[in-house]
Design a protein around this nucleic acid. Structure first.
Length: 445
RNA sequence: CGGGGCGUAGCGCAGCCUGGUAGCGCAUCUGCUUUGGGAGCAGAGGGUCGCAGGUUCGAAUCCUGCCGCCCCGACCA
């Protein structure tokens, strides 16, 4: 992609409304544009990140046996009247009426709808287990939207729903999602600590939140430093092996970790040696619930079991804030110069900087590398603009692509390009003809 | 919803107190010179001063009402 043909409206100055770093950087890099309080357009750069996050979430959900579908943003009120939540949900739910004055709502979540689908089509235990998910925009009319996409009113969420015959099966479904979440965050270069959570308006009795640490987090968290020593890399797992899945869950839930609401200071002090007690701020990036028949009962989702008796399904729901993650990742990964994207979610893998646009040798070398990289399947943003060198460096650091290739007359005399790693600023001169392969190897690693 | 603040050019701001018909920096456009960490010179374009009413010869400025946005608190992916 040539920068001259891309849409990258970077702002030179900090927008005054942005208080926290991710919001500021998302606005400055032209990832998003605010349309109303808590409602954003995703411009091309931001949209690429959103798609990357979504792809990782999708891959891990599919891997864990969940099935992707798509439910609408608008839902009939009637469905929610049956579960009793039409009144319970309060003002946070956006209510709409159509031309026939039928009551609709912009979905804040989809338990009712998915349960209704399952109730209609699933009659036998032989059709279980079932886990359906979608990645769809939600609307919650927050009292106070803030911090950009971290607490928007409209936001993109992956929500999965499991349906099983027995409580044991249901808990295994819960555990599968738990493990899938660990893998998902790890694949984005994040450590998300699972913590026991309150169930809120979703209801139920088994629930965990996943939080990543960042100074600007909205939750106060307390946990055992032993979490830092865990192996967070994507580990392989057989999702059908109940014992293996349960073991991973146990491994990540026995150490103390709690948010403010669930924190028990006495227990914390008793279970965790003083030097390992950590407290800090966290951002909630996922929340999973197991709630048994809370929704299946009122919505009539029941099947015949092997014994010929009717039973209500055991279900759970599992959410990941996809759009919030874009902000959360920036909170966890940036420096004074700008964003430092973990490669799996970076909008492009590599930025090529032509220091002397218009110079025949520089143009030729950049064009050639640009083509080589694209042919090799590397996502590259080539700064072919006539801007000055300093502006190009600053802008490239700001948008935070993992790798930069700097090509100018000075290096060309030696037949080299300078390759810079954004994360730590490490630079290396690489012979021009080897740059594409050099990068390809590092991107695969 | 309670408390605080803001709305003037694409962005950041001044002007408002003390009314006289809008200005600065950056950005944008043209030309020339520059070119390895946000260049210089010369010129140019761009504003319903959030909206509505009122006071006045005259309102960005004073008064009233409304709208929008941000920040702090109680709730949430």
């Amino acid at each position: 992609m040539r920068l001259s043909r891309f849409f990258l409206p970077v702002l030179r100055e900090d927008p005054k409304e942005a208080e926290i770093v991710s919001h500021r950087l998302m606005l400055r890099t032209g990832m998003i544009r605010q349309e109303a309080a808590g409602i954003y357009s995703w411009l091309p750069l931001g949209f690429r990140v959103l798609k990357k996050i979504e792809a990782i979430v999708r891959r891990e959900m599919d891997r864990a046996g969940a099935l992707e579908m798509l439910m609408p943003t608008l839902q009939p009120a009637e469905l929610w009247q049956r579960s009793g939540r039409y009144d319970d949900y309060g003002k946070e739910m956006l209510r709409i009426s159509d031309r026939h004055e039928r009551d609709l709502l912009y979905g804040p979540t989809n338990e009712e709808m998915v349960t209704d689908i399952v109730a209609r089509f699933v009659q036998s235990y032989k059709q279980l287990p079932l886990n359906l998910y979608h990645i769809q925009w939600k609307f919650r009319d927050e009292i106070r939207p803030r911090f950009g996409v971290m607490r928007g009113r409209e936001f993109l969420m992956k929500d999965a729903y499991s349906f099983d015959l027995t409580r044991e099966d249901g808990e295994h479904a819960y555990n599968r999602m738990f493990v899938a979440y660990l893998r998902t965050y790890a694949a984005m270069g994040l450590k998300a600590i699972p913590m026991r959570a309150e169930t809120g308006p979703i209801g139920g009795n088994l629930s965990h939140e996943f939080l990543i640490l960042a100074d600007t987090g909205e939750s106060q968290v307390y946990f055992d430093a032993a979490f830092h020593e865990k192996d967070w890399r994507s580990f392989s797992i057989d999702y059908d092996d109940r014992a293996a899945v349960a073991k991973v869950v146990e491994e990540f839930t026995t150490m103390y970790a709690a948010t403010e609401e669930m924190h028990d200071a006495a227990r914390f002090e008793q279970e965790v040696p003083e030097e390992r007690r950590v407290s800090g701020r966290g951002i909630e990036v996922g929340h999973i619930f197991f709630f048994g028949d809370k929704y299946t009962k009122p919505l009539g989702a029941k099947v015949l079991g092997p014994d010929g008796r009717e039973v209500y399904l055991q279900s759970g729901s599992y959410g990941i804030g996809v759009s919030r993650l874009a902000g959360a990742i920036i909170e966890a990964s940036h420096d004074d110069a700008g964003i430092i994207w973990p490669q799996p979610v970076a909008p492009f893998d590599v930025g090529v900087i032509n220091l002397r646009q218009g110079d025949a040798a520089c143009d030729a070398a950049c064009e050639k590398l640009h083509t080589e990289l694209e042919n090799a399947g590397v996502e590259v943003l080539y700064d072919d603009t006539a801007d000055r060198a300093g502006e190009k460096f600053t802008r490239m650091d700001l948008i935070g692509l993992p790798w930069q290739v700097i090509i100018g007359p000075r290096g060309l005399k030696e037949g080299v390009a300078e390759v810079k790693r954004r994360a730590d600023g490490a630079r290396e001169n690489v012979p021009l003809e080897q740059v594409a392969e050099w990068l390809r190897q590092r991107l695969q690693a």
